[in-house]
């Protein structure tokens, strides 16, 4: 072999090695989801006898039907569907309100700067990162005093409160890059505060609205701490119900039902990720790299 050929074959060796490594890791990331999915389509007998990694011999959606409609969570055996709707009822208003507030806050903080605005933003920003254990005790008291303990409305209040920070951060960073000249020109033309927001900034805010909505949706849907602390029982969100189902130790452990319930809990956010993954990643980066 000539020198060139040695180089070429060694480079091919490296390419093969790189591709193999990347594929092995892809398998590592997919494996738990794959196992969860096929387990949910097996019957109990096959779980005990068969191999965790082998495809179901008799595909059945019985576990899904049971998880949705008749699995026992706590004292009631009506499945997780009620909790699924609890989560929807909690997520939709929380996302809408926090995104709207974030947009208008970002607009004020970038286009209507005032003395001390940096401090206002810094204080709101730090609020994004606190460990929520610090607010659990007073929040449960306040919700109790307002008569909102254990209600979905209470959870919406909590999620809006602690979601404003990130929403404001996203919109502020986005609007900071928006040409201030356009805003100034509109002001000279006599456009009002809200008119400028409505007619000039909002129409070009599509991408950041998508990013914020996805970020808030994922975080609030996936929340467990607030749900477990403030909405136990009938009004619990999906994640809390799932945990109750999985960790209950009465009767025969039906892993296929557990996995079906876990899949149902995962589907909304997975779906968002599949449809709009690009925006999801942008939100992640905006929420971390540029603090």
């Amino acid at each position: 072999m000539t020198n060139q050929e040695v180089k070429a074959s060694s480079s091919r060796f490296w390419r093969v090695l790189i591709y193999t490594t990347l594929i092995v890791f892809a398998a590592f990331y997919l494996l738990p989801l794959f196992v969860m999915l096929i387990t949910s389509f097996k019957d109990l007998e096959e779980l005990r006898q068969g191999n965790m990694l082998s495809l179901p011999q008799n595909w059945t959606i019985a576990a899904w039907i049971k998880a949705w409609g008749s699995a026992c969570i706590g004292l009631t055996c009506e499945g997780i569907n009620g909790y699924f709707w609890n989560s929807i009822k909690m997520v939709v208003p929380s996302v809408l309100i926090s995104t709207l507030l974030g947009a208008i806050n970002g607009y004020v903080l970038t286009k209507w700067r005032f003395k001390g605005d940096r401090w206002v933003f810094a204080l709101m920003l730090f609020g994004c990162f606190i460990p929520f254990q610090i607010v659990l005790i007073p929040m449960s008291q306040i919700l109790g005093n307002l008569g909102l303990a254990g209600t979905t409305t209470g959870l919406v209040l909590v999620h809006v409160t602690y979601g404003i920070g990130f929403a404001t951060l996203f919109f502020r960073n986005y609007y900071a890059a928006f040409p201030t000249e356009l805003v100034k020109a509109a002001m000279i033309d006599g456009a009002s505060f809200l008119g400028i927001f409505w007619r000039i900034l909002l129409p070009s805010s599509g991408p950041i609205i998508v990013v914020t909505v996805i970020w808030q949706f994922t975080n609030i849907w996936n929340d467990f701490l607030f749900g477990a602390s403030f909405a136990a029982g009938e009004s619990a969100p999906m994640t809390v119900a799932l945990n109750n189902l999985v960790s209950s130790s009465t009767g025969v452990k039906e892993y296929n039902v557990d996995m079906a319930a876990a899949m149902i809990a995962a589907l909304p956010t997975l779906l968002v990720y599949i449809v709009a993954g690009r925006y999801f990643v942008r939100g992640l980066m905006a929420g971390s790299v540029k603090g």
């Binding site: 990331y29 989801l33 994922t218 849907w221 996936n222 929340d223 467990f224 994640t239 799932l242 945990n243 876990a262 809990a265 995962a266 956010t269 997975l270 968002v272 990720y273 993954g277 999801f280 992640l284």
Partner: peptide, 9 residues
């Protein structure tokens, strides 16, 4: 994609 999942899942 695991980042989109809840820690409970």
């Amino acid at each position: 994609y695991p980042m989109a999942l809840s820690f409970i899942v």
